[in-house]
Write a protein that binds this DNA or RNA. Structure first.
Length: 576
DNA sequence: GCCGTTTTCGGCCCGACTGTTTTCAGTCG
């Protein structure tokens, strides 16, 4: 079966090939279609199965011609049009365009003059000094290419947000503390709280731009300064990320924050609205485009949205996937707030693979203001973690009771489990033990490569057990390391709805599982979710924030997230 | 190639930077 990601990749490459040939407008059309397919919560293969060509055309950005191409891909696994383009210029586009500063036109030039087809060829040619001899290339382009290759090798290009956020916040705080800095805003994918980020974009206003720029470029975490001017500096950080600092005029601050927050698609949609209203929108402000370019708004981000006839919206929503229509009609969701969780329903301790004791975890949770936690250690099947069997878990209950007495009313410690789902969908603890637990979470930790059908049935069976409350990290993906196992998420969501099972949003930064598109479907279907830290040490509680971000990107409100509720309401829901 | 509170043709987001040019193409966000 061909996944959305694969279809999107082919469409995107077609766009790039057409760009290469200097074709007008079509490249954008293919790029847009690729984005739509990649971002679709539903598999295009399933959309096609259900309704054929016509339903494919309902995907925004997909028309008759691209629908046919998707059909051909789904049916035959190949696409003639794509293959012909590839034959004409047989290069590894997917990887080559990853190099910063290298686009389709230059890739074509490199291929035609030096027969460069892939990253290896590129690196060799650059090292041999061949590239600088090409027309319109020079020494600097060659250097940049080598740096780009190195970056790609080292980091895969993107960093997991939750892991680098402390670095970002530290830089932000230091900038704020500078006397000459007035306002600071971290923008881009960080402000949108995306799962991963490609670089760090920071905006400031200041009366002494030069001195702020000098400070930034000289920070100890800077490895290399790419460039430094009057209003902007770009640096490479030692952690392997690029960071840009821009100084903007106060009168344009709101417009700049809006612009640099993105997403690109969201901004395009906003500018289209501006044009329809007879305005022009750029990073300096909103202007009336009729003679003289009078400024309508710019100092304040909210004002820009309002002048465009939209409600201001949280950055997490800015993906051009319905938020603009909602903002037009006043139907934006009231997103779950940061800091609004009252409990955490997945926590590991030193009874299995956690680093801290039950008491240490409980005390850490108290200090964060949580009102309840569930201790959910692994079960026997996960031998490498020293998983608890039916006898050992009973012993743990006694320990929990003891610590509960010690901590008194400061926090409620619930007895739980992260029970393994076995190959056939049965569970790693007997029902009579599960029945005595406050919180039964289940999870897949083995046999990731079952067929889609078998995996789906396995999970459906597990969450249909009447003792099961929550399905932990439902897709199993780990960012940058492991793909999700094959499942039919729609069927699982449906079963969860029927059985009242909660689907987890695992907040651990490399998991963030469910994904935003799944969350949005759960919200629409009325399937409840929990946001859990999956903490394996006291320091991991801080990751709850990124789970909330994930939920917000999935349009979730407080009522969708059971551990944003008070203890009694939450427990009543689990017991139904 | 897509799309339509200007609709089935004629538009399609915008500005800055870089490196190489001597007036600009390519790329990026």
């Amino acid at each position: 079966m061909i996944s959305n990601a694969e279809v999107a990749k082919v469409l995107r490459e077609i766009g790039e090939y057409l760009e290469m040939q200097g074709v007008a407008f079509k490249p954008r059309a293919y790029e847009k279609a690729a984005d739509a397919v990649a971002g679709s919560g539903e598999q295009v293969s399933e959309i096609y199965e259900k309704g054929g060509l016509k339903t494919l055309e309902e995907i925004p950005g997909v028309g008759a011609s691209i629908a046919e191409k998707i059909e051909e891909l789904l049916k035959t696994g190949r696409l003639k049009y794509y293959e012909e383009l590839k034959k004409k210029t047989p290069v590894d586009l997917g990887n080559l365009v990853q190099i910063e500063g290298l686009g389709p036109k230059n890739i074509k030039k490199l291929y035609e003059n030096l027969k460069i087809k892939n990253l290896d060829d590129l690196e060799k040619a650059a090292r041999a000094g061949k590239i600088r001899r090409l027309e319109s290339f020079g020494e600097k382009s060659e250097e940049r290419i080598l740096k780009g290759i190195e970056f790609l090798k080292k980091s895969g290009g993107r960093a997991v947000l939750g892991f680098i956020m402390p670095v970002v916040r530290n830089i932000e705080e230091r900038l704020k503390s500078l006397g000459e800095v007035e306002k600071v805003a971290v923008c881009g994918s960080i402000r949108r709280m995306q799962e991963t980020i490609g670089d760090i974009d920071i905006l400031v206003t200041s009366k002494k731009p030069r001195s702020v720029i000098d400070y930034f470029a000289a920070m100890p975490e800077v490895e290399h300064v790419y460039g430094k001017g009057e209003t902007k500096t770009m640096v490479r950080l030692k952690i392997g990320l690029d960071a840009d600092l821009r100084v903007v005029e106060p009168v344009s601050y709101g417009a700049a924050v809006q612009y640099f927050t993105g997403s690109k698609e969201h901004n395009i949609a906003l500018r289209e609205i501006a044009i329809k209203k007879g305005y022009k929108l750029n990073e300096y402000g909103l202007f009336s485009s009729g003679g003289g370019d009078r400024m309508i708004a710019g100092r304040d981000e909210k004002e820009i949205y309002e002048k465009l006839g939209l409600m201001w919206m949280p950055p997490e929503l800015r993906t051009d996937s319905g938020e603009i229509e909602a903002a037009k009609t006043g139907k934006l969701p009231k997103l779950i707030e940061y800091g609004s969780l009252q409990g955490d329903l997945q926590i590991q301790t030193d009874w299995t693979d956690g680093k801290n004791s039950i008491e240490e975890m409980a005390r850490a949770a108290v200090s964060l203001g949580l009102e309840y936690i569930a201790i959910t250690d692994h079960t026997e099947r996960l031998a490498m973690t020293g998983g608890l069997d039916k006898k050992k878990i009973v012993k743990q209950w006694a320990e929990i009771d003891k610590i509960q007495r010690k901590l008194g009313g400061r926090i409620k410690i619930l007895k739980g489990t992260e029970c393994d789902i076995l190959k056939d969908g049965s569970l790693d603890l007997p029902d009579k033990v599960l029945a005595k637990l406050d919180v039964v979470g289940v999870a897949i930790h083995s046999r990731f490569n079952l067929s889609r059908r078998d995996q789906t049935e396995r999970i459906k069976k597990a969450i249909s057990n009447k003792h099961v409350h929550i399905f932990f990290h439902p897709t199993g993906r780990i960012i940058g390391r492991r793909e999700a196992y094959e499942i039919n998420m729609d069927e699982i969501t449906e079963t969860a709805k029927k059985t009242g099972t909660v689907l987890e949003i695992d907040a651990f930064p490399a998991r963030l599982d469910l994904k935003d598109e799944h969350i949005r479907k759960c919200v629409a279907a009325g399937v409840k979710m929990s946001i859990d830290s999956d903490a394996h040490s006291v320091s991991h509680f801080q990751y709850l924030e990124f789970g909330i971000a994930q939920a917000r990107r999935g349009w979730a409100e407080r009522n969708d997230i059971i551990n944003a509720w008070p203890l009694e309401k939450m427990r009543k829901f689990l017991k139904r």
